[in-house]
């Protein structure tokens, strides 16, 4: 059972990987000022992106304290939140991004465990 799932999952992942290899990632990281959690998130996101999406990602860090209107527009609830605008589907990652594995799943670089 597990094996089969992993197999199909692997295949999908490979497809996604192929696609994502070609596609450009547009990421927005919403943070709240310079709290430890915010800085931790910024560091983590940058590190992972450099490692896995080098050269094909665009990351914008936004402080919602400065732009509270955006929080409403982008449906931000938790902080920090990373939104994967492109490629679709839209994904929201919340937390300080210290869990790399979950991060990769979140931006569809790893297959979802069901």
């Amino acid at each position: 059972m597990m094996k089969e799932k992993t197999k199909t999952g692997d295949r999908e992942y490979e497809k996604a990987l192929k696609r994502s290899n070609e596609e450009k990632y547009i990421l927005r990281l919403y943070v709240t000022g310079i709290t430890p959690r915010s800085t931790k998130a910024i560091v983590n996101v940058k590190k992972i992106c450099e490692e896995y999406l080098k050269g094909r990602y665009e990351l914008e860090v936004i402080d919602i304290y400065q732009q509270p209107k955006l929080a409403k527009g982008e449906q931000i609830i938790a902080a920090p939140t990373l939104i994967k605008k492109l490629p679709l589907p839209l994904r929201r990652l919340i937390g300080d991004m210290s869990d790399t594995e979950k991060f990769l799943v979140g931006i569809d670089l790893r297959p979802r465990k069901s």
């Binding site: 919403y30 709240t32 959690r37 998130a41 983590n44 919602i64 304290y65 509270p68 209107k69 929080a71 409403k72 931000i76 609830i77 938790a78 902080a79 920090p80 939140t81 990373l82 589907p89 839209l90 994904r91 929201r92 990652l93 919340i94 937390g95 300080d96 991004m97 210290s98 869990d99 979950k102 991060f103 799943v105 979140g106």
Partner: peptide
Amino acid sequence: SEIEETGEYDLEGLFIRLAYA
């Protein structure tokens, strides 16, 4: 389904929205 939790977080986003409104 859109949300992935990747570590510690808070609901500051919600607070900011409420404060703004």
